[in-house]
Design a protein around this nucleic acid. Structure first.
Lengths: 190, 190
DNA sequence: GATAAATTTTGACATAGGTCAAATGCCGTG
DNA sequence: CACGGCATTTGACCTATGTCAAAATTTATC
């Protein structure tokens, strides 16, 4: 099993020992998904989290018939349903692949067990939540202080890969603006 | 030392043993702050986190001369500078008391050591970050899908105590609307 | 309990970004 | 290499919320 990028990314967040690495490897199953596949469906228990080795996904809500993208994940990232992992509730969020994806699946149950029993992974879990929290915090600040155009610029800076690999509509809804507005902003830009 | 509400709140997030409780108690110092005291100043290392036993605080950014409230904390909560705790950087966030406050101070260094060595606290740390992440996630969703008025209603529902104890301007900036707009909304409400 | 200071309400007007619909461009499939 | 379907751009118009400033109300101070 070649979890190269996943392990690399975990070690960047919180270095883990080779035993922990092995425990993790023993807990996952490799899986492959085509482009546009619904990895996690709202209203259904998936009971799994996925470490992404290759490809990109987006998470989104469906609110009043509209899709609102809440995050993009790619090589080294992890996706799961917050509602399931945190609160043992049915997911309200969808995750779909934007490209062909190679991922490692772990059951939510096993992941929680690892958190409870392995202090390295408990700390890794804490750190990735810190990081995500900070990303949201930052985007919250940007939303309150920057114009739509400046937010797009900031997004391009922060997530250049996503900008290239995801289509406009998804980025617009992530930024909380309309597809037409975003398109206009790009047009206005010299 | 009576850390009643703090300990209660920790146990709600992730139950800890009495040994862990004692380790925590041995690591903190009780302190008292008057109303309107700057607990954490931007641009200065405070090197401390505070468990709040009594009273309320708000955290905010100062952007272009404007204060943007990012969160309120009260009995049982913990406040700290994300930049210091996570990234060993000088804080960009202020925290000030809105009431007289009784808190328990712990050095950031000691808190991180506890995370590294005590699996219960590592998991507690993970859980509170999950919860905060979820709060932000939710407010992000509300900002994208609800009108200013509906967001205020949602806020009242979710944080009734804060609504009563914090002044309008702080709530307005938390919700990302103007003081005048919020005041109008309240007026319009039958 | 009067005066000052802070907070909240209200008014008149401005504007960023939304809405809806049409037009154009692009790219994979047969 | 042409067709069909997405994806993007553009146009005309609209509305929720912002801005700035003054008035009213509440709260704190002596």
């Amino acid at each position: 099993m070649n979890m190269k990028r996943v392990i690399e990314t975990i070690n960047e967040a919180y270095p883990i020992s080779s035993e922990t690495e092995q425990a993790l490897k023993d807990s996952v199953t490799e899986c492959h998904f085509p482009k546009r596949y619904q990895l996690i469906k709202a209203g259904a228990y998936s009971k799994c989290a996925y470490f992404i080795e290759e490809g990109m996904t987006r998470s989104f809500w469906l609110v009043n018939g509209e899709e609102i993208t809440t995050s993009f994940s790619y090589e080294g990232g992890i996706v799961f349903s917050m509602d399931e992992l945190y609160y043992n509730k049915v997911s309200e969020e969808f995750v779909e692949t934007l490209e062909d994806v190679v991922a490692y699946r772990i059951s939510v149950e096993r992941l929680l067990e690892l958190f409870r029993t392995n202090i390295e992974l408990a700390n890794w879990g804490r750190i990735i939540h810190q990081n995500e929290y900070r990303r949201l915090h930052r985007s919250h600040k940007e939303r309150l202080t920057l114009s739509a155009g400046d937010r797009y610029e900031a997004f391009k800076q922060q997530f250049p890969q996503v900008c290239q690999r995801a289509q406009l509509g998804y980025i617009a809804s992530y930024l909380g603006i309309t597809l037409s507005t975003l398109s206009r902003l790009r047009g206005a830009k010299k």
